[in-house]
């Protein structure tokens, strides 16, 4: 029986996503709509007055026509005023909407910052250093195991291996070079300069 009156069974009404700023924007926009409707009304009146003034002029009633045009002029000044008010309202609406966007951006940054802090708490600088040291130790230990498995060469053995390698390289280089002749070069017996050179010398002299 108690279940009939308890609120447990009832579905909770979904929480409204409308903010106070939204309400302010709506009120401003309603004011804007009223001004626009007022402008429409004035425009109709202006057109009507203009036509009446035309008709009065046509009928020769110049004074009444002038009066009508004065009324029209006053209506036009009202239109200008409402334009200014509309401009103010539009600016205010834009500012409010942009302020909401800015607020959301700041909120997003705040959430991001908190998440980053939590991540930093999970991994401190000391922890990272400790992990790096352990990694280094692990690598060194692995190197020792590798050395043991590959036959465990001593430092002397390593030197011998390197010396042998040098000898092989040297032998390969020697094999590749051509033999140098040890004969003496013959003397140059030509004493006279060639004719061509003689002719050139004569030409220069003259």
């Amino acid at each position: 029986m108690g279940g009939l009156f308890s609120s447990k069974g009832k579905d909770k009404k979904t929480e409204s996503r409308v903010t106070e700023q939204d309400k302010a924007v709506l009120q401003l926009k309603q004011q804007r709509d009223k001004l626009k409707q007022y402008q429409k009304k004035i425009n109709v009146q202006i057109e009507k007055d203009r036509n009446v003034a035309k008709q009065l002029l046509h009928d020769g009633k110049k004074d009444k026509a002038k009066l009508m045009l004065r009324k029209k002029k006053f209506q036009e000044s009202l239109l200008e005023k409402t334009d200014g008010q509309l401009d103010n309202i539009d600016r205010m609406v834009t500012d409010l909407e942009f302020a909401q966007i800015e607020s959301q951006v700041v909120q997003g940054l705040k959430v991001g910052n908190e998440s980053l802090k939590k991540l930093h708490q999970l991994l401190s600088l000391e922890d990272v250093e400790k992990i790096m040291d352990e990694t280094r130790e692990g690598i060194e230990y692995q190197q020792e195991i590798d050395d043991l498995l590959s036959g465990g060469l001593t430092a002397q053995d390593e030197d011998d291996v390197l010396a042998e390698l040098d000898a092989i390289v040297q032998a390969e280089v020697t094999d590749e070079l051509p033999e140098v002749p040890d004969d003496e070069l013959p003397e140059d017996k030509r004493k006279d300069k060639p004719r061509k050179e003689k002719r050139q010398a004569e030409a220069l002299a003259s």
């Binding site: 409204s16 996503r17 409308v18 939204d22 309400k23 709506l26 009120q27 926009k29 309603q30």
Partner: peptide
Amino acid sequence: AEIMMFDDSEG
């Protein structure tokens, strides 16, 4: 969407 109705405002 969500209908807004408060005071004299409707939107």
